[in-house]
Design a protein around this nucleic acid. Structure first.
Length: 933
DNA sequence: GACATCACG
DNA sequence: GACGTACGTGATGTCC
């Protein structure tokens, strides 16, 4: 049915950003009643769209239609001129979360919604308008932006939707004093303070138009500038020629940019009432949904009159916890009743009970649900009957449970329904359990992540902690139910009535926490952090963890044996040297041998009264003695064997043959992830022997491992945050940053640099990131403290911005109780005002957190965008190691994958943050991780 | 379960 | 002037 765009067609192009800002400023700051989400701009946007669709604009009806949005803050204009739009104010905090909703709104109206990374909406509009005009059609641009006026003419008109005023060639002349084809000339001269286009100083639109009309066009004017009578004006045009020509390039729209769609894709489509109503209902627009429903002749959606946040909070506190009210759901009918309530409500708190903590292995035992504080249920599914001493009955299913499949069949549509929010505490766990049963839970909210976004650094984010702190309620502990040690049982052995009280309460607590946190998120100014850096990471990580990484057991096993042999030899030598047998693995025994029996120099250690035998101590002793050297070698092998070659084998999943780590999103205060069970973020790499362990991490046949890692990301971020011109310059010149530092510090030319001097400078660079101290640097470099202090003083002298950054950061922390990353992540520093030795720790942590945290945010953003970027490629993201991402890729697609992933990683800060220093990514590939890294 | 040690960024 | 310090993690083995 598609017609080809051509004569008789009429294309309408709506400037989406203009709509959004108008809507935002025209309306008071409305919030969604149920959860406090700001929605004023979305509401206004929908209103404007509806009015437009109603034809309330006096223009001929379109045959083709699209809403065009900006995407990304960096465009080719920024490359031309780094000050372009530089003085534009940051987007208001309560508008930011509404931007994606306006896209959804457009789609809900079934209107084409277009944006292209790196281009302004104006360029897309210009390109489309030209295409449509060339095809013989007409165009109406719904906008009053003067930057678009250059497009008017030959069937292209503008429409100011607010004033219902059409702008044609004469309208443009009215505004600019010239016709559309000369508008850019006038703009180039007059400049634009809003977009920070410089233009010619002292020349406004009036004068510009006068000049252009006199000389014909800008080029002629500039060529013949010496003919201008007014001396000042003449001089300006002669002196500022470059700036004026640059301005013209900035204001001229790109009418031939690449598009990934055609005019025909914009053919007008009928609205799908159900879809539009679902969106309006989700936004809780009562009046608007009713008005539009009337217009469409359909039933208006019922929007539950949910309590305002403050009331919800009171309710959450008012309703007492009462385990006897929890229902045990044992059949389909009872479950259906709960599902009905969930559908009515639009959200549900969910919790799963399983036989263990490893979600790749644990079996689902039961599910609890909660839709209202105090009202929760537990659905037992695979509890075993009888006590554990019942030798025969313990494996049989207990009575009175629904079959697992039946329960999941009923729940699946709800858990996957995009209009029903699933709320959980650590949802990644539950989502993975459900995923193993073929249920893709979405969309989700996570109280643990909300707490992390609001209270990172203040306290833990486990449910018990949160419940006690924010609900004043101590949940039933799990310990008494499961026991501990050898006699511990799994949850499926817990009696169903006990399980119901425990499990349903967890869902109850989760829902109450959610009702409390949801409105607070916005007040704490962390909605964007939660929505862009926490919540969207859940499905990405779940996917990575479930996919796992292939590990070759035989390689590990062989290495284990080799290590064992070497260790045995070393152990014999150590005993020989010591003159007695002792446990080499016991620091206490080793200390006595070294310092008491052999009488070596090298002190004690405080608290426990034992000798310190750390690597640094042994390293010093090793210059004079054999034994400590042997112990160091033995320890290295012992570590490699026990932690890696042995333990890793036990983590190979028998079903998949792969190792599945688990990432803790809230694991580190700074925003970094933490990897556990096993930790795959500390696989050896620094020593040759250790690195060989990475040879056991392999790809499936026909595939290779690809590793991409950020180069010096923390130092780059430091250079940006502390605004160190010399560092920024060095990065932009692609210099060896440590050598450059050394050269600057010690006045050594780069071509005379020695590895030793560079090593010292490298230590200082890292020291700065860690909150440098004379003592720490002295110990790291093994130099006298005074000398180390001298280095630091000199560093501050050469890079004064560092001192300022440190002082400012500590002052900020003292005043606000937190520091923050460039992306708005808050890291609380409760100890910053402490007295005594604590204070030093807190200060250094405060200095480090914005740097480490910003780097963590950057890679999180890259990870969130990665699935889309590599969509369609035979590639999977497997692991994250703080500044590195590891992929498994079909051999033939390696180059494409590297290109796609690198683009995402290098551009990960955009558009939220414009870094002064570009991020660069190194890539490697190979049959195993040792080769790829 | 605390502590020491050591693997990573 | 004295504190005692590099930042952020997790896993293992010893010893109580």
């Amino acid at each position: 049915m598609t017609t080809t765009f051509g004569k008789g067609c009429h294309l309408h192009l709506i400037d989406g950003s203009a709509f959004i800002f108008r809507a935002y400023h025209a309306l008071p700051p409305l919030t969604r009643k149920s959860d406090g989400l700001p929605i004023g701009a979305v509401s206004g946007f929908c209103n404007m769209l509806q009015r437009y669709v109603d034809g309330d604009h006096g223009a001929d009806a379109p045959t083709h239609l699209a809403v065009i949005f900006d995407k990304g803050s960096h465009t080719f204009r920024n490359d031309l001129y780094d000050q372009y739009k530089a003085n534009r104010e940051a987007m208001p905090e309560d508008l930011r979360p509404q931007i994606p909703l306006t896209r959804q709104a457009t789609e809900a109206f079934n209107i084409a919604c277009k944006e292209i990374e790196g281009y302004e909406a104006d360029d897309i509009i210009a390109t489309l308008a030209c295409q449509a005009r060339d095809a013989g059609g007409r165009v109406t641009i719904v906008s009053s932006d003067k930057d678009l006026m250059q497009l008017v003419g030959d069937g292209v008109e503008m429409l100011d939707a607010m004033k219902n005023r059409r702008i044609d060639r004469d309208g443009v002349f009215e505004k600019f004093g010239v016709f559309p084809e000369r508008v850019v000339d006038v703009q180039a001269l007059a400049g634009d303070s809003v977009d920070n286009v410089p233009g010619a100083p002292g020349i406004g639109i009036k004068t510009a138009a006068l000049l252009i009309n006199e000389f014909g066009d800008l080029e002629t004017l500039l060529d013949r500038a010496d003919e201008i009578k007014q001396p000042k004006r003449r001089q300006t045009l002669i002196d500022m020629r470059d700036q004026i020509e640059l301005s013209k390039r900035l204001v001229a729209l790109d009418t031939a940019m690449p598009l990934d769609f055609t005019l025909d894709d914009l053919e007008i489509r009928d609205v799908v009432p159900e879809r539009l109503m679902a969106f309006l209902a989700e936004m809780e627009f009562r009046t608007l949904s009713k008005r539009i429903a009337d217009r469409l002749g359909v039933e208006a959606p019922v929007i539950p009159d949910t309590p305002a946040p403050e009331q919800a909070q009171e309710q959450a506190e008012d309703v007492p916890f009462d385990a006897s009210k929890y229902e045990c759901v044992r059949d389909g009918q009872a479950l259906q009743a709960w599902i009905d309530r969930i559908r009515e409500r639009g959200w549900v708190a969910v919790d799963t009970e399983t036989t263990g903590l490893n979600e790749m292995i644990a079996d689902l035992v039961g599910i609890s649900l909660c839709v209202e504080p105090g009202e929760a249920c537990y659905i037992p599914l695979t509890h075993r009957q009888g006590a554990s001493d019942d030798l025969f009955g313990s494996d049989a299913l207990a009575e009175g449970q629904m079959p697992l499949d039946e329960a999941l069949t009923l729940l699946k549509p709800v858990l996957e329904d995009p209009s029903i929010l699933k709320i959980g505490q650590n949802m990644k766990y539950d989502a993975k359990i459900f995923a193993r049963h073929g249920v893709a839970v979405a969309p989700i909210d996570d109280t643990m992540l909300m707490s992390y976004a609001m209270h990172g650094g203040e306290h833990g984010h486990g449910m018990d902690t949160l419940s006690e702190r924010y609900l004043g309620h101590t949940p039933i502990p799990i310990k008494p139910l499961l026991g501990s040690g050898k006699s511990a049982i799994t949850f499926d052995k817990v009696a169903i009535d006990e399980a119901t009280a425990y499990a349903a309460e967890d869902a109850d607590v989760t829902l109450r926490l959610w009702q409390l946190f949801k409105p607070q998120l916005h007040r704490a100014r962390v909605t964007t952090v939660y929505e862009t850096l926490e919540r969207p990471l859940v499905p990405v990580l779940a996917e990575m963890e479930m996919h796992g990484v292939k590990v070759d057991r035989d390689v590990l096993s062989r290495m284990s044996n080799a290590f064992a042999q070497k260790m045995a030899g070393l152990e014999a030598e150590i005993h020989e040297l010591a003159g007695e047998n002792f446990n080499v693995g016991s620091p206490a025994q080793l200390g006595e041998i070294l310092f008491d029996k052999m009488g070596l120099e090298g002190g004690k250690k405080g608290k426990t009264g034992k000798y310190s035998t750390g690597a640094d101590v042994l390293e010093d002793l090793a210059t004079e003695h054999e034994l400590p050297r042997r112990v160091l070698d033995w320890r290295q092998l012992s570590k490699l064997k026990s932690t890696y070659t042995d333990a890793l084998q036990t983590h190979i999943n028998p079903d998949t043959g792969r190792v599945h780590t688990s990432y803790a999103i809230t694991g580190a205060n700074t925003g970094r992830l933490a990897s556990t069970d096993p930790n795959l973020q500390n696989i050896p790499v620094r020593t040759e022997e250790g690195r060989r362990i990475r040879e056991a991490f392999i790809a499936e046949p026909g595939n290779v491992l690809v590793s991409l890692d950020y180069s010096q990301i923390e130092l780059r971020i430091l250079a940006h945050i502390a605004d160190i011109a010399a560092l920024k310059q060095a990065f932009s010149d692609g210099l060896d940053i440590h050598a450059m530092t050394a050269s600057e510090m010690f006045d050594v030319p780069l071509d005379e640099m020695t590895p030793e001097i560079r090593r010292q400078a490298k230590a200082i660079n890292f020291g700065v990131i860690y909150g440098i101290s004379g003592f720490g640097l002295a110990r790291n470099l093994r130099i006298p403290r005074a000398e180390a202090q001298g280095f630091i003083d000199r560093y501050f002298e050469r890079f004064p911005g560092i001192r300022r950054y440190m002082d400012d950061t500590i002052a900020f922390a003292k005043e606000h109780g937190h520091v923050q990353t460039l992306f708005g992540r808050k890291i609380h520093t409760p100890e910053i005002n402490a007295k005594g030795p604590h204070a030093g720790f807190a200060k250094r942590a405060a200095i480090n957190a914005p740097i480490q945290g910003t780097a963590a945010d950057v890679i999180r953003r890259a990870m969130v965008r990665m699935p889309k970027a590599i969509e369609g490629l035979p590639a999977r993201m497997l692991l994250q190691v703080h500044d590195e991402l590891l992929f498994e890729v079909a051999e033939y697609a390696v180059d494409d994958t590297i290109a796609a992933a690198r683009e995402v990683m290098e551009g990960a800060a955009d558009p939220a943050v414009k870094l002064d220093v570009k991020l660069t990514v190194d890539a490697g590939q190979g049959a195993n991780w040792a080769e790829a890294h």
